[in-house]
């Protein structure tokens, strides 16, 4: 909880009733079922959930990167007052990479294996930065200029021997270094929003610590909005100001990090937190959530968590709850809990 989020609360990204379907052979996968989310300027926001909960689909929708057979069927995503979903392809391309960037999960598959790293990073400067005409027209000057820029950004992400790395190919680097290259690429054009989509999942724990440390430093120095998409609750607890927990394409709970981990309200969040082993608080057996993750071709009616929910009532299967503010900065998507907390705001 930094002051920036507590006081100003300038909304930089406002997602309203976002619905995304994937049209597969098995049927229509209703991946996102009305996501409402506001992300404040300058905060680190975490999106957590298990496989298939829709966290990646949400952020990819923000950048309009949903590919076949997926389709955004409903909703609005406002970035600085403009609905991203209504932008023309040409306009959205000006946002991608320049205003919003994404750091992907597996740095091996996300870097082009046959193009030199320097070239891949310099593309960012080439397309998103105004370069003086005399440099742009002179091939030699341009490559020198781009190389300088790339080396500069490599230094910023603490990549050693930046000048030498320029001509390397992705497979010649270690996993940690590749991830740094992806980060370099994502901050190259000085974006407003940086989305880290499971950015450290493929890394070993000591390398993950290095990368998280780097991201923290960059956030402090650059003051950008960071969105962490992850299944790792530890990363959320350490990196984020606020968190949204997703379940089956719906948002279960949104709260400030401390509130969410200390006093979770939604039964799913509670179950999830109890099911992870803690290094510093050992216990003999873990609590678990009964049942299985729903099949989103044929999702449960109403609240999608209701078949597994210990607090289930009749209304949960009949009517979908709204995401309601039950405490200051704390929203919950649950009929039972909303009734319990009524009037407390």
């Amino acid at each position: 909880m930094t002051e920036a989020t507590a006081n100003t609360q300038d909304v930089i990204l406002d997602i309203k009733n976002l619905k995304v379907n994937f049209y597969t052979y098995e049927g229509v996968v209703k991946a996102l079922d009305g996501i409402d989310l506001s992300i404040y300027k300058g905060e680190s926001f975490g999106l957590v959930g298990e496989t298939g909960c829709g966290k990646s689909v949400t952020v990819r929708s923000v950048m309009r990167l949903i590919e076949e057979p997926g389709k955004i069927v409903e909703g609005e995503i406002f970035y600085k007052g403009n609905d991203v979903l209504k932008l023309k392809e040409k306009e959205i391309r000006k946002l991608r990479g320049a205003k919003m960037t994404m750091i992907f999960q597996d740095p091996m598959t996300f870097l082009n294996p046959v193009i030199q790293i320097g070239e891949q990073v310099s593309e960012m400067f080439l397309i998103h930065q105004k370069i003086q005409k005399d440099i742009l027209d002179n091939k030699k000057k341009l490559s020198k200029y781009l190389k300088e820029k790339v080396v500069e950004i490599f230094d910023l992400v603490k990549l050693p021997d930046a000048a030498e790395l320029f001509k390397r190919y992705p497979h010649e680097l270690s996993g940690g270094m590749r991830q740094r290259v992806l980060i370099a690429m994502s901050i190259a054009a000085d974006p407003d929003i940086i989305i880290a989509d499971e950015a450290t999942t493929a890394l070993d724990v000591t390398i993950q610590a290095q990368i998280l440390n780097l991201l923290n430093k960059l956030k402090k120095d650059l003051g950008r909005t960071l969105i962490f998409v992850t299944h790792n609750l530890g990363i959320v607890a350490e990196m984020c100001d606020r968190v949204a927990v997703l379940y089956g394409g719906q948002i279960a709970e949104v709260a400030e990090t401390k509130a969410l981990f200390v006093d979770p309200i939604h039964p799913y969040t509670q179950g999830l937190l109890r099911s992870i082993p803690l290094l510093h608080k050992p216990k003999d057996l873990l609590d678990s959530i009964d049942g299985v993750v729903p099949n989103l071709v044929n999702p449960p009616s109403g609240c999608r968590f209701h078949p597994r929910c210990p607090l289930k009532e009749d209304i949960c299967a009949q009517e979908r709850p709204k995401l309601v503010k039950v405490l200051p900065e704390h929203w919950v998507h649950c009929h039972v809990k909303q009734r319990e907390y009524e009037g407390k705001v």
């Binding site: 950048m63 000006k94 991608r96 990479g97 994404m102 082009n112 593309e123």
Partner: peptide
């Protein structure tokens, strides 16, 4: 996908 996300 990364290339797309770069705005190319």
């Amino acid at each position: 996908l990364l290339a797309r996300s770069k705005g190319l």
